[in-house]
Design a protein around this nucleic acid. Structure first.
Lengths: 199, 199
DNA sequence: GTCTATACTTTGATAGAC
DNA sequence: GTCTATCAAAGTATAGAC
């Protein structure tokens, strides 16, 4: 598991290529042939590294993409001077990425999550775990800012819903208006929660 | 175009079946064979009524589903004693439907919208038009409640983003927690906008 | 572990009889 | 307008040489 330096690269390339394809074209819209083509990998390698086929690959990609996106957003928040600006920066940054990628790169697992919700239980569970990890990440920061538990939980869910919902509207309309509107609302509800701390 | 009373029924059944399949399994996840099977229609009828194939059928279904959902939500809002309760009823009603359908029936076009955003321009435009019609519907009601134009527009987008985002989280988690959190937030921002009218 | 060739299934789409 | 048979292409998955 460590002798051949090139060993893990094929698997990584497959995972990276799949992640990008899933984000743009979804689960059913992404073919295994396109994955190995984008990853510059032979077809057989895919089933060598993922004996469970597309489903096993999908589960791994969902977890991996979810973790990477959590890190990305956490970095944006922690780089900001305060929590409120951090939240604003997330929405603004998402809008920027969306424009830069011709409205292709939004949430890495949203399309897949909707596709598999009623069709594939292992994949559905993977997306649920990722969303829950994001909620937990936000929750911890709001708790650290002395917001009470129920409020922090509801606030975390609300912010993620605002972001995911705005992604749908933005990708459909090819504008970033929804992310701006959602970002403003997000700032308002965060500010209200911070103000209401000493209840 | 009016002689045979059974003529339009086949087309309607195809449209209805497609709408339900799109909502649950998305665009690429729905096969034409499954559509004609669910619609109890012969395969040839599909291409007779929709010479443009899956894409033409998809465009029509998106517009049709969008119009029906707009009517449904408008009915819920107008049945409420006031705008604020109407908004609350929408989120509560959506949660009820989701539970009753085993988390299958949420937004009729959300999954499709994400799938086609970067892959099929005619379908993407159709989803964009539907979302814009929903925004307009909400906008008109907020304007009628004396909320200024920019606020009404931003508020309308925010509420739809909250609803769509909550749908993703609810379908993935198989809980209605996100719709409840989003509904509470929606009520808060609507109330704030109504209170701020006499600025 | 890598790579090619191929089997099997399903997909969207068409032809043509009725 | 209805219905069946069929096509070419794409999808997932497997076998087996290297």
């Amino acid at each position: 598991m460590a002798a051949n330096p090139k060993a893990g690269n094929t698997k990584s390339r497959i995972l990276d290529a799949t992640a990008e394809l899933f984000m743009r074209y979804g689960y059913t819209g992404t073919g295994l042939k396109q994955i190995v083509a984008d990853a510059n990998a032979p077809f057989g390698s895919l089933y060598h590294h993922f004996p469970g086929g597309k489903e096993e690959l999908g589960v791994e990609v969902i977890h991996r993409s979810g973790a990477m996106y959590l890190e990305l957003v956490s970095g944006v928040i922690d780089a900001a001077p305060d929590l409120l600006s951090g939240v604003r920066d997330c929405f603004a940054g998402a809008a920027e990425v969306l424009r830069a990628t011709d409205y292709a790169d939004a949430c890495p697992i949203e399309t897949v999550a909707l596709e598999v919700a009623s069709t594939n239980e292992p994949l559905r569970e993977a997306t649920a775990q990722v969303f829950e990890s994001w909620i937990d990440g936000a929750f911890a920061r709001f708790r650290a800012a002395d917001i009470d538990e129920p409020t922090a939980r509801e606030l975390s869910i609300t912010l993620i819903a605002l972001l995911e919902g705005a992604f749908v509207l933005c990708r459909a309309s090819r504008t970033t208006e929804a992310l701006e509107a959602a970002g403003n609302t997000a700032a308002i509800v965060v500010e209200a929660a911070l103000r209401g701390r000493a209840t």
